[in-house]
Nucleic acid binder design. Structure first.
Lengths: 342, 342
DNA sequence: ATTAGCACTCTATGCTTTAGAGTGCTAAAG
DNA sequence: CTTTAGCACTCTAAAGCATAGAGTGCTAAT
């Protein structure tokens, strides 16, 4: 496969841009008219034929214009990323206005973030706190709850507060619960949930050695408590329904299924949260069949190099990438600022 | 408007049932064939013409069969409700299997409930804890959180556990927080959030008289803490997309908007949670423009005559009501059983 | 290497026709 | 007086057909 010369690159980008603006297959005529390369349609036709051959464009049918392939979008996006500076201060302030008041309520913060993203982008906004294996325990408190239950309140370093209820077989008084909490805090505070779970398994295996019944019970509680899925927030389905790309019911169904099942998207976002900066995954690059018609623009909020949140946009492969990139990047930066303030 | 004689009733119900099974306008021929009244199509035609005149049926166009109006469905549903016994023990056990393990996690419980409802009904499943004005405070705990914040953990009589973070201007130690919590519990425990808010407003109005600074601060915290919207859970959008009733994109958009904005549905469910038993609201009866193409089948879980949860189905007006009623009723009864165990 | 010219291809659109389902009315039968 | 058979009429949805227009690929000229 040959590399593209300057001219071919420009024409490819022109085709992609035109198609992003108006979802009609673009013909040589249009390119030569709207993008002044000083080339005739005939020449452009030749180059476009090459681009088809190389897999950057396809023809819906013989006598139609060209449409970008995933590879075509990929090329376009890479050249975008190389060039642009995508922090948008105006949007930064806007999102600030919307979110500032919610800084103390992480759920609302995430949910309003997705709403903001989706109204500004007209695509799906997504946001997620890290999955529990990455999360670090800050503190745990235990309460007697109803007759035979314990309520555990868990504070994490990422600013999450979670509660879990655990049924117990025999009664326990609040004093003992306090002791148990103290033990758990001394033992596990500062560790990720993953580490805690492993430690617990180890402890349980040498169960017989543990003499203190309270500790044993505490550890039992841990097993049920220190695991939860990432909280995924998604907004904007009604936005994307307006897009011509979703005139097809089948696509809508795929998308709404993915949103409802959540775990596909959670897995995806979790995988991406290891990396820095804006990441873009286009169509089939997602490597998940149910998502191969969509693109993803994602950025991760980090603190001390550990992920504390992921935000992104899901849209059609025919997405306004430059706008999406700018929105996601700006939002992630704002969220990072908010989340890191302790 | 005359009342319907026996024959007309039967024919009306036959038309509704046929249309629910297959969404084609039903003609006199079909009725006479499939439902053996011993009447010729011509006679049935006459009666159907009357039913149109009375507003129970309409004709999409002159030479088409008949389709039920909202009033037609209403009549059908009322005759259903009069007859049937809708608790389904088989489904009761099935939903038990699915939900039993989640009894300690109310959020998961509600969310899994909606999922179960939607997979069995193929309509939208909805569930909601009561709105905060109806909820009764059981206990509140306060913690110092990060440098300048307080975390409040709120336990309600309904079994909800909520946490709120409140920023404060000057530092406060845990001992004082404990005192504040004790005060709040003694003062407000057993009261609904509505009552608490009113009390707080009263207290604040005579602010100057309150000498204890701690109490003043505690009351301030209340103001921010004792309000939250009902937690609405919805599942099954991807289910309803399969229905022929939703071939129209516009309808899907309306529905997904209602789901995303939530407050419309929350308001609706809240209004209904005062009543007992299965309630059915059909199309325009909902009195909300965005919902006038849908129907709602709802039942409320109660304990000591106070609502502790609402579950329901949202579907097209052309819904399989008898199935929906049975599912909702059974689910509500199971949920009531689980939620009431303390 | 580029471009103008031209024949060719394919789709989308609009129009016309047709089949069929269902009705309403009338007149006969029970 | 109610019910029913018969029949002309209406309306839709589907199928077939013709046409316009956009876009292509190829060839020959620049």
């Amino acid at each position: 496969m040959q590399t593209l010369d300057e001219r071919a690159k420009k024409i490819l980008c022109a085709v992609v841009q035109s198609y992003i603006e108006v979802p009609d297959p673009v013909g040589s005529r249009t390119v030569s008219k709207v993008y002044p390369f000083g080339l005739s349609p005939a020449t452009i036709r030749n180059i476009m034929a090459d681009l088809v051959e190389m897999g950057f464009l396809i023809q819906p049918h013989t006598s139609a214009g060209r449409v970008p392939t995933d590879r075509g979008y990929r090329f376009y996006v890479d050249s975008l990323l190389a060039e642009m500076n995508y922090l948008n201060m105006e949007f930064f302030r806007e999102i600030g206005n919307r979110l500032e008041a919610l800084r103390d309520n992480i759920d609302m913060l995430f949910s309003e973030t997705t709403r903001t993203i989706s109204t500004f982008s007209h695509y799906l906004g997504v946001a997620m706190a890290p999955k529990s294996n990455r999360i670090t325990l800050n503190r745990i408190e235990l309460f007697k709850y109803r007759t035979d239950k314990i309520a555990a309140i868990i504070f994490t370093d990422e600013g999450l507060i979670k509660n879990r209820v655990v049924s117990i077989d025999s009664e326990i008084n609040q004093k003992d619960l306090n002791k148990m909490a103290a033990y758990l805090n001394s033992e596990f505070s500062g560790h990720t949930f993953d580490e805690i779970r492993q430690k617990v398994i180890k402890e349980m295996s040498k169960e017989k050695i543990i003499c203190d019944r309270l500790i044993l019970r505490a550890i039992r509680i841990c097993r049920e408590t220190f695991s939860f899925y990432g909280d995924l927030f998604v907004s904007g389905l009604s936005e994307v329904l307006d897009l011509p790309d979703f005139a097809d019911l089948k696509k809508i169904k795929e998308l709404s299924k993915a949103i409802e099942e959540k775990h596909t998207i959670i897995k995806l976002l979790d995988r991406l949260s290891d990396f820095d900066g804006v990441q873009i995954i286009i169509g089939s690059e997602i490597l998940m069949d149910e998502m191969k018609k969509f693109s993803l623009v994602v950025s991760t909020c980090k603190e001390d190099n550990r992920p504390i949140g992921v935000v992104g946009i899901i849209g059609p492969t025919r997405m306004n990438y430059s706008k999406a990139i700018s929105i996601v990047d700006t939002t992630a930066k704002f969220l990072t600022k908010i989340l890191a303030e302790k």
